[in-house]
Computed example of a mutant assay.
Amino acid sequence: MEIRGLTPGEQPPWDLLLLADPSRDMASQYLEEGLFYIAVSDASETLGVIVLLPVGGHSIEIKNLAVAEPAQGKGIGKSLLAHGIQVARKKAYKTIEIGTGNSSINQLALYQKAGFRIIGILHDYFLKNYPEPIYENGIQCRDMIRLTMCLSNETKEKL
């Protein structure tokens, strides 16, 4: 497997982007300014995607992280997450953030195992920002759980 940026003229894998964010309008907004990477199999099949977006002077946010359903549970999400963290460090960001739904149980576990810490909850975020109800794991996705990871020792001391 290789993780790489999109080549000129290559279309983003909308099927994967919409797995993590069911709003094409919202995804389109961060695609224009974000750093976009895909995980590609040896057979040139797109397995996953990660999009990072600078959100302030020293912080970058993972706006989208998705793995194709047949490829889930094989470490691809973990590899994409590690790649995103590595990119953020190389670009000298001090923190990396991510938000996910209260119903995203597997994603919450993945992010915390990678070192992210919960810093807040945006109550009713998905009810206010998405026209259709979202369900995962038999749970309605209502609230956004916000997580962050410190990438520099200076930032760690302040938290």
Rank of each mutant, 00 (worst) to 15 (best):
M1K: 11
M1Y: 11
E2Q: 15
R4T: 11
T7I: 11
P8Q: 09
E10Q: 14
L18S: 13
A20E: 02
P22V: 00
D25N: 15
S28I: 05
S28D: 13
Q29L: 15
L31S: 12
L31C: 13
E32L: 15
L35E: 09
L35M: 10
L35N: 04
F36R: 07
Y37Q: 14
V40R: 13
S44Y: 08
G48C: 01
I50C: 07
L53H: 13
H58Q: 14
S59C: 12
E61V: 01
A66E: 08
A66H: 11
V67Y: 11
A68Q: 10
A68C: 08
P70I: 08
A71D: 06
A71F: 15
G73R: 11
G77C: 02
K78F: 01
S79P: 01
L80N: 11
G84T: 01
I85F: 07
I85M: 09
V87D: 01
A88D: 05
A92R: 14
K94G: 13
I96P: 09
I96N: 06
G99S: 06
G99R: 03
G99T: 05
G101L: 02
N102Y: 03
L108V: 00
L110G: 04
L110C: 04
A114W: 04
F116L: 13
R117A: 13
I118V: 15
I119A: 01
I119D: 03
I121M: 07
L122M: 14
H123K: 15
H123D: 09
H123Q: 14
Y125E: 01
L127G: 00
L127W: 00
E136S: 06
E136C: 03
G138N: 09
Q140C: 05
C141Y: 03
R142P: 04
D143L: 07
L147R: 05
M149W: 07
L151C: 09
E154D: 12
T155M: 10
T155V: 07
K156R: 10
K156P: 00
E157M: 07
K158G: 00
L159A: 06
